Amino acid sequence: MQRDCADGKVPVEKCPGNRRWVQLAFDALLLNASGAVSYVDMRDATLAANQIRFGGVDLPDLWNAFAQHGLGRDAASNAATTPTRSRVSPHHTVATAR
């Protein structure tokens, strides 16, 4: 199955999670603007890529994972200031770090 997925013989929607993740990461890179991007920019692009490719089916899991790592809903990144971390997910009140 892995080989067929890698060769494009199986639609990505029917492939194992690792193939979905690779496709999602690639799509997010394509959605980002050229040049330097922040982690928050990549978070937003990853969420958008999931919405576009998979109809947003993974958004709760993605938001919770981002929140666990400080990239929750209220995270901010600005070159002039220290990044603002957030552990808040729209799908859980507060994510806990592992």
Rank of each mutant, 00 (worst) to 15 (best):
M1Y: 10
M1K: 10
M1I: 09
Q2E: 05
R3C: 03
C5H: 01
C5L: 01
A6V: 10
D7F: 02
V10C: 08
V10W: 11
V10N: 12
P11R: 03
E13R: 05
K14Q: 08
C15S: 05
C15W: 07
G17S: 13
N18A: 05
N18I: 04
N18Q: 10
R19P: 00
R19E: 15
W21H: 08
V22Y: 05
L24A: 12
D27M: 09
D27V: 00
L29Y: 01
L29P: 01
L29F: 03
L30F: 06
N32T: 13
N32Q: 10
G35P: 01
G35T: 00
V37H: 05
Y39F: 07
R43V: 04
R43P: 07
R43G: 05
D44E: 11
A45S: 15
T46I: 11
L47H: 00
L47G: 07
A48Y: 03
A48E: 12
A49H: 06
Q51L: 01
R53D: 06
F54D: 14
F54L: 15
F54R: 15
G55C: 15
V57Q: 03
V57T: 09
V57W: 01
D58A: 06
D58Y: 10
D58N: 12
P60L: 14
P60S: 07
P60Y: 06
D61Q: 05
W63L: 06
W63K: 08
W63M: 09
F66E: 02
A67Q: 11
A67I: 09
A67C: 11
G70R: 14
L71N: 08
L71T: 05
A75N: 14
A75F: 12
A75W: 14
A75L: 14
S77F: 02
N78W: 01
A79V: 11
A79D: 09
A79W: 04
A79K: 08
T82L: 08
T82I: 04
T84V: 03
S86D: 12
S86G: 11
R87K: 03
V88H: 07
H91L: 03
A95C: 13
T96S: 07
A97G: 01
R98S: 10
